[in-house]
Design a protein around this nucleic acid. Structure first.
Lengths: 236, 236
DNA sequence: CTGTATCCGTGTTGATACTG
DNA sequence: CAGTATCAACACGGATACAG
């Protein structure tokens, strides 16, 4: 019948939304579309520009990025804003509520690293590496490790700090870093998560360390990878 | 060029997967497809049959359901199994790892109820109502409330128990319930979340209460709804 | 730099009918 | 009950070209 088609169109453009009271399903309506979640992830450490997002989001097209940014803004998850005159540049920033989605990313990350199909060797954006560090950090395993790391990836500065228990990560440079680590995200990941010898990475020119090298050497122990799920296992 | 097309096809059928080390992105690869997440949700309280899933997932087609079940099984999230002879019925059950995805649903639910667009008046499946109760329960707000509820929705039994602090939910009947509540999920939601007067629901025949009625009357106070996000708000 | 506009192949979906 | 088969509509995403 034609009526169906017509009502579909006029009802609302909710062809692909779950018409469900379940809030988790609603979350998928909000950021379940392709690329929406990675876009949010890239903004989790602060405002970014269009071009920065495009490069970080490996393979996204300008069209997609524009559409997702519009959609996420309409949903109230981010805002588009123009920086004041000296800079006068367009940036996208999460709203307060948008930032509050961070625990979802943590829960997903913690769970999905155990997937048999998960491969940490894929393209890694600086922001997602930083977020993964925060997620995978284990206070128990780290023991008394403390320090202030400055990380430089693709010529952008990020930091990672642990000072008795608490950890903090973010974009930008910090004062008095104990050590400066320069390299690509995959290179850094390979020594933190992939138990690649530090000398190997430095020797190959993938990584440069400036400052207290011992802090880096103790790093892998702070981020124990959980074992992957094995064969399909019944709950018990 | 044709080459592109050809390599695309042979490379792997990962046209729509994020080729990303970010584990959260990988989670979307695993259950970000349409209907995958609601299917998992319906299984979170125990094994279900094809027909049960189909009715609970408002509007899903048999084709979709089949495809998602296959995909989730291939991902190691659920298993298809046949119950022993007396029953001899096909059911789908989450693997242990599948069950461990529950915190993701909690985080998503907690966050998405605050969405300006979220509408608790939409179709509600029994399982998602039960999960929402567990998610939204506030120990502080509940104070000394304690009791054993038996809920009957669409002729299926579910329970909700709080005994000094701890809460438990599940499918099936319990012994010595303090009160039996019969009605549809939306009807129950309307009195718990929608501050509809209990007498109103009973009078309209939407709900039946058998047992300690005062427990039901104190229920809404145990599940305070967080305020929705208002206008786009900057982080601070 | 920050997008917009258009085109078009391809993939996905829901309806319907059918099978064991 | 538990799916499978087929099909047509349509939404999506990538490429390209272009504009402010």
């Amino acid at each position: 019948m034609k009526l169906q088609k017509e009502t579909r169109r006029t009802d609302w453009p909710d062809k692909k939304r779950y018409d469900d009271a379940c809030a988790a399903a609603h979350a998928m309506d909000l950021f379940g579309e392709r690329w929406a979640m990675p876009v949010m992830r890239e903004l989790l450490l602060g405002p970014r520009r269009f071009s920065g997002l495009k490069t970080s989001l490996n393979g996204i097209s300008a069209k997609m990025l524009t559409e997702r940014l519009e959609g996420l803004e309409a949903a109230g998850i981010l805002v588009k804003k123009k920086l004041p005159p000296p800079a006068s540049v367009q940036v996208y920033e999460l709203t307060r509520w948008g930032y509050e989605a961070a625990p979802i990313f943590q829960a997903m990350g913690r769970w999905a690293v155990r997937s048999p199909r998960h491969d940490p060797g894929r393209p890694f954006s600086p922001v997602s590496l930083m977020l993964s560090l925060r997620t995978m950090f284990s206070a128990d395993a780290a023991g008394d490790w403390a320090g202030r790391l400055q990380l430089r990836m693709h010529n952008e500065d990020y930091f990672w700090i642990r000072d008795q228990g608490e950890i903090a990560i973010g974009r930008g440079a910090i004062e008095r870093p104990d050590v400066l680590l320069t390299g690509t995200p995959p290179a850094i990941a390979s020594i933190v998560y992939g138990n690649r010898p530090l000398d190997d990475a430095i020797g190959a020119g993938d990584l440069a360390v400036e400052g207290d090298r011992s802090l880096i050497e103790r790093l892998p122990a702070c981020f124990p990878m959980p074992e992957k799920t094995s064969a399909p296992e019944r709950p018990s």
